[in-house]
Nucleic acid binder design. Structure first.
Lengths: 149, 149
DNA sequence: TTGCGTGCAAAGGTTTTGCATGGCA
DNA sequence: TGCCATGCAAAACCTTTGCACGCAA
């Protein structure tokens, strides 16, 4: 068994995750720390996140391999029932936390013997805002909210 | 509208994808080409795969951000009405064609205003065979049917 | 004091990009 | 011939690792 130290860095990272109900990437955390003038190394962020993940304190998502992994504070067991909808038009990430998720998991398990990993799964499509705007132009303007290539 | 050229490289990559019903990574393709003594640059592989993805000819999966993306030949347009279940353990891709898919699309559209793109969406989890085998050892043997690291 | 956690820098990996060249139509 | 696709190398990017030092318990 390993000893657990409560360090200043760990507290800062955890606080930031708690403040942000949405996902944050490792890069976001590093940027946030730099903004605050706190000196925390990138490696420490990753190591801390890894440890927090193992402890189940935070959850890790892979939404887009380009931008790396996202982390989210796990508030409780209820977050297990949670899907992500990704809009391929504007890039928005929408959280779905309704009872349908459980229903879905049950269906796939009972009828297909498939144990869904909701944390890993991202459902692609077009969000409500974009489907209103969307002309049937055929060209999809990919995504990338916050990214300019 | 862009012209589409049928190049030797594109044909080779597509053939390799067709031969391999399981997923292959960009690195697999590069290795395969090198084995065959065919000279194809890494950048070409990625660019070709991107193009094939956009055309819907191949599908792209992110199973583990460490090992990069995996690609798989998409067999036909009929797959639009399906969901895909991807087993993160053995890499199997399972087609789901039951009425639940329509139900699911309806739910997301009505309750969340989100138009699901089923062809693009992959649901991750563990298939029935793997969940039987799976000992609660904690170590997951990742995926990689046909990979030896 | 013990040994876990940290910071820095360097390395690892995958994927993208720039530029001149090759090749399809 | 026009212009898309390619190859090579370099870059960008996220993440991990090694090592010496700092700091919690």
């Amino acid at each position: 068994m390993k000893a657990e130290y409560n360090t200043r860095q760990r507290a800062i990272i955890l606080d930031f995750l708690k403040e942000n109900s949405a996902h944050v990437s490792a890069r976001d955390i590093v940027a946030h720390l730099k903004e605050q003038g706190v000196c925390v190394g990138t490696a420490t962020v990753y190591r801390t996140l890894d440890r927090l993940c193992e402890q189940g304190v935070v959850r890790k998502f892979i939404i887009d391999e380009r931008s790396g992994a996202c982390y989210q504070y796990a508030e409780g067991a209820e977050c297990n029932e949670h899907f992500h909808l990704k809009c391929v038009s504007c890039g928005a990430l929408i959280h779905v936390d309704c009872g349908f998720v459980a229903e879905m998991e049950k269906h796939f398990l009972c009828d297909h013997g498939f144990t869904v990993s909701s944390g890993r799964t991202v459902i692609y499509g077009v969000c409500s805002s974009c489907s209103k705007i969307d002309a049937p132009s055929g060209t999809n303007h990919h995504c990338c909210k916050g990214h300019e290539h």
